[in-house]
Write a protein that binds this DNA or RNA. Sequence first.
DNA 1: TGTATTTTTGTTGTCGACAAATAAAATATT
DNA 2: AATATTTTATTTGTCGACAACAAAAATACA
Lengths: 233, 233
Amino acid sequence: MGETTQGKPRRGHGVSTAYETLKGEILELTLAPGSPVDESELSKRFGMSRTPIREALIKLANDGLVVTLPNRATIVAPLDFLDLPNFYDAMTLMYRVTTRLAAQNRTDEEVQVIRKLQGDYADAVAAKNVSRMIEVNRFFHSQIAKAGKNRYYIDLFDRLLDEGRRLLRFYYSSFNDELPEVYLDEHEQMIDAIERCDVETADRIAKQHADQIVRQIQSYIVDDRRLNAELAI
Amino acid sequence: MGETTQGKPRRGHGVSTAYETLKGEILELTLAPGSPVDESELSKRFGMSRTPIREALIKLANDGLVVTLPNRATIVAPLDFLDLPNFYDAMTLMYRVTTRLAAQNRTDEEVQVIRKLQGDYADAVAAKNVSRMIEVNRFFHSQIAKAGKNRYYIDLFDRLLDEGRRLLRFYYSSFNDELPEVYLDEHEQMIDAIERCDVETADRIAKQHADQIVRQIQSYIVDDRRLNAELAI
DNA sequence: TGTATTTTTGTTGTCGACAAATAAAATATT
DNA sequence: AATATTTTATTTGTCGACAACAAAAATACA
């Protein structure tokens, strides 16, 4: 495994591998918010020319995960704490809308997939694997949105979930407090409502779930002394 | 003005000019939905290498305005009539949310800008300039969203407004029926509500306005015989 | 004549190199 | 010594060329 060149990926797969890998690292905070992203460096690392790297970075910029400063460096998008209220607002609305639609449009197969992801989530909680928990939680809600089948909502929600994943990762990595098993129960209720096609209940649980997450993030921020340092910049 | 090379644009402006120009042509239906977009052709046309053209196309793909078929052509995104219900749903929700937020967060300066755009819109209606009308209408609502100051909603709404602009252009170009002066009045009421910070009224007018547009598009579709030909493909 | 196989053509994905633009370093100036 | 100016260095934006892939054309075969 000492090889830097791991067998040429098929034509056209260059951009997507760079894109997927970088996206994963940004969401995991392996790449710190605000840190510079060097094209030539990535070019060497992925063993490909700068062209596909650039195309991957453009996609990441469209996702809001990196920011491109013209003629200067590209940096990993900073976590914008001042904009959090807008994030909460959009997140809550999308939680509600996607869960509602899922209750309306879900197929039995989709409910199965959602239940499986909930199983994975429970496993991660049991294993106290925080990183995995956050990751699976994102896919769980994304899958619910998919069952709603409105691509406009799906796209925005995925973006919000990614942003939320970074945010949670940011605090979990430093706090290491008790894991929120509360979510497990809410997820169960959510799935049940979706399966019964009970739109109003689905909506209510979704709102409750969103509020819970907002409160959790807020409580982290209040306790976090680093925030002052961040804001001072 | 017979020059094909119109003086080299400054470094970094290559991508944006190609992007803006193509976006405008796609929204105006100068480039027909489904028609192929050739990189070398554009390269010659804009007097630049294929690299900036490609980067512009990637951005357009992220906007959902072109579709890239791997290793084959890029085409202008087709108008997806089967997905219209989802479009209506998202459009209506975003109309409401952005107008509500505008009523909450607007500054006096922003109201002035909105009023100015409404003036432009009225001019276009008076001049019976359909193309201009559709264009200004898009900027009018986009400006309202900006006054709401939630970037997540702004981005989705802009995308929906663009999609709507193509849709309206598609029908106006063929029907040429009476211009909807009804919208003028609704716009006025909308601005007033925003200026008074009357959130609930703003919401109500927004919903009413969205429903009006949906009805209009629907009535076009019912009357349109081309639709069968389109769907038959 | 109709189908399968090969050849050709055209377009995309990738590459390495150069030039413009900016930041950092070095020098000059008061 | 502190500021202003020039020089250097690094990184991006763009270019032209080549190779891989898919579709179309041409050929072979039944």
